[in-house]
């Protein structure tokens, strides 16, 4: 019995250490962003907001932030539309080649970003379509759509297969049913998909770096500062970036978990 307690406690401590390791960089970045030392170490320097002041007074940061917001909102909307269509098709239809359809829908996240970045750069350059904000939006939509699809598909799993027929039966055409039944039913998952894909796009740097040209997004800017030298501004910008994406991911998760499947019959 003593053995059991020892084992349980060592596992507990071990798991705690793993969580500390995972969240250490996020916490460190937050702490360093308010720390006066240029090269933070122990003991910490004094409390300061100078890095924030420096970062936020830099017009380039604001330009990049604006671009990042435009890119992530646009790709989130596009990816959610595409993800919804694919999820609905998977839910509703059986057809020849459906396996291939699903593979195509879910494959992008398994391709290393750097390879997809190179391929997209080559492809878009052929149409003189690289180096613009729209290039980043296009590529991010590809990357984000599978996440949107997965989130919405999970919600559709909880939909009674007779719900749509019931609406047709009461006089709603397929399109009207989509608007008045399927969309209301999947609304929380659509909102979750928007948040999650916005977070993915907001943090993506490899593809954005390759195809954005001079239209740098925030992560690309961080990447370039990082390549130069250690600059504590990154902690300030990084903390702001973390706050944005953590908020988005947490909202998404709450939306997904919030509505438990309810019993269909009493």
């Amino acid at each position: 019995m003593r053995d059991d307690t020892v084992l349980r406690w060592s596992l507990r401590v071990y798991t705690a250490v793993i969580f500390v390791f995972i969240f250490a960089p996020i916490a460190a970045s937050l702490v360093f962003s308010f720390n006066s030392d240029r090269f933070p170490s122990i003991p910490l320097g004094t409390f300061t907001t100078q890095w924030y002041a420096k970062a936020f007074s830099n017009p380039e940061v604001w330009d990049a932030a604006l671009r990042s917001v435009i890119v992530s909102v646009s790709s989130a909307v596009l990816a959610t539309i595409i993800g919804f269509s694919a999820a609905y098709t998977d839910y509703r239809y059986e057809f020849f080649g459906k396996k291939a359809f699903l593979v195509l829908a879910l494959l992008p996240p398994t391709i290393p970003l750097i390879i997809f970045a190179l391929a997209t750069l080559g492809w878009l350059s052929m149409f003189q379509a690289s180096g613009m904000m729209i290039s980043v939006i296009i590529a991010h939509t590809v990357l984000c759509a599978p996440f949107a699809m997965a989130v919405i598909r999970l919600r559709l799993n909880q939909m009674d297969p007779n719900l749509e027929p019931a609406a047709w039966n009461l006089g709603a055409s397929e399109w009207v049913t989509m608007k008045s039944v399927v969309l209301p039913f999947t609304r929380p998952s659509i909102a979750a998909a928007l948040c999650l894909t916005a977070a993915v796009s907001f943090d993506e740097f490899a593809v954005a770096w390759f195809v954005s040209g001079l239209n740098k997004t925030v992560p690309v800017m961080i990447l370039e500062i990082l390549t130069g030298n250690i600059d504590p501004q990154i902690n300030a910008i990084g903390t702001a970036v973390f706050m944005v994406s953590i908020t988005l991911v947490v909202i998404a998760q709450v939306l997904i978990m919030g509505r438990r499947p309810k019993p269909e019959s009493a």
Binding site: D160, N162, L163, P165, A166, A167, V181, P184, F185, R187, K262, E264, S265
Partner: peptide, 10 residues
């Protein structure tokens, strides 16, 4: 009238 009733839950 459906076996699962298919009421609109929202």
């Amino acid at each position: 009238v459906w076996q699962s009733l298919a009421l609109f839950p929202f």
